[in-house]
Amino acid sequence: MALQDKYKALTDAATAAGISDLAVREQDGVLYIDGTAADGATKDHLWDVYNQIDPNFAAGDLVLNVNVAVDAAVTQAKVITESSNLNIRKGPGTDQPIVGKAAHDEVITVVNKSNDLWWLVRTNDGEEGYCYAKYLEPQA
């Protein structure tokens, strides 16, 4: 219960933000908060609250697993790397060979999002392969 009290501001914020499928459990000294946020701003807000309670996330007593809901209808995504090109790989994993690159800010076609971490994409040049989903921003 102590951890639920420590992170009460966070769970309250999650409830207020309308996080769907919100689940809060404490197990072996770690609090697990799972759920789905409507958008990236909501998720970032929760991480701000987390950072206020535990500056620099050093306590190791919380796993904040909040994903951003992805519209199933999305077929286009923009490459949001810092500045570099995004690797397109043969399979889902950095151990997989690079089969192509997508430019920073390029909008590419999303073929399949069944893997949360790695999306199957196709560039405008017709190169097809897997990209790390964190660097892709779904386009409406």
């Binding site: 770690v30 996330f57 190791g60 909040v66």
Partner: peptide, 26 residues
């Protein structure tokens, strides 16, 4: 650095770890 720390923590937290033992110097 601080801005990268948030990104890294966000990416690691969705991987369903038991715990993240963060000993990084910020």
């Amino acid at each position: 650095n601080k801005s990268s720390l948030v990104k890294l923590m966000q990416q690691l937290s969705v991987l369903k770890p038991k715990k993240i033992d963060n000993q990084l110097t910020v």
